[in-house]
């Protein structure tokens, strides 16, 4: 993916850029909003990572201008402002995701990669498959190797999210935000327990595990090893 990082904190940005490059992405970095807008206008990016508070031109305005110009490149806001209202402002300005500082790099990477995938038309897809696991959104059925698997509604939504982001790392926070719509971190390992329940249903009776734990980051649903 080609990623444009607009972040005025040079140290934080250097770390971010290095990490994204190591994950195999091509990254451009600028330090202020005006330059960022200029770079974005030249196009060709798969995702933007924008700090909300930038010199010259703030992040919200920058993205609003791009959106008005018809640019639909997915964008993730980084911000120290983390209240629900702040998130709403970020999403209203055209942001696709919102990450509050301080954040773990693994969280950011997972979210940026999830954004890149959003360009693929998963939103309109009604059938997914990972390996021999199949999901039909319309009939709300899940099969593995042709065998029907019964899931609770929430388990279904959890699996759906994982399937839409197959082969990507999905963090616990992403699951909590997207499947349960909560923006706080429970101190109990509630997500892990849900994942292990789901695993018991889709992986337990099969040789090959599809739902894998990614150490220090989260989970991924994939057929690869």
């Amino acid at each position: 993916m080609r990623i444009l990082v607009i972040e005025d904190d040079a140290d934080a940005a250097a770390f971010l850029v290095k990490g994204l490059r190591e994950a195999g992405h091509a990254v451009d970095h600028v330090l202020d909003g005006a330059t960022g807008l200029n770079m974005a206008e030249h196009g060709g990016y798969d995702a933007y990572v924008i700090d909300r508070m930038l010199p010259e031109l703030d992040g919200l305005t920058l993205l609003e201008q791009r959106r008005n110009a018809g640019d639909e490149t997915p964008a993730l806001f980084l911000s120290a402002l983390g209240e629900v209202d702040d998130r709403v402002a970020g999403l209203q300005a055209g942001g696709d995701d919102y990450l509050v500082k301080p954040y773990a790099f693994s969280e950011l990477l997972a979210r940026v990669e999830a954004l890149g995938r959003r360009r693929a038309p998963t939103n309109t897809m009604t059938k997914f498959n990972v390996g021999d696991l199949e999901m039909d959104i319309l009939s709300r059925t899940v099969r593995r190797a042709g065998r029907k698997i019964d899931l609770q509604p929430r388990e279904f939504r959890l699996l759906e999210y994982l399937m839409r982001h197959a082969s990507q790392v999905v963090t616990r926070t992403m699951l909590l935000e997207n499947v349960w719509e909560y923006h706080f971190d429970p101190q109990t390992n509630v997500i892990d327990v849900h994942i292990s329940r789901l695993r018991g249903k889709i992986d337990k009776d099969f040789d090959r595990a599809l739902l894998k734990t990614v150490r220090g980051a989260g989970y991924t649903l994939s057929d690869e090893d």
Partner: peptide, 14 residues
């Protein structure tokens, strides 16, 4: 109910 739904499996495990 929504929070319970999130916590129920963890409660059972504990």
């Amino acid at each position: 109910n929504e929070v319970m739904e999130l916590y129920e499996p963890a409660a059972e495990d504990a």
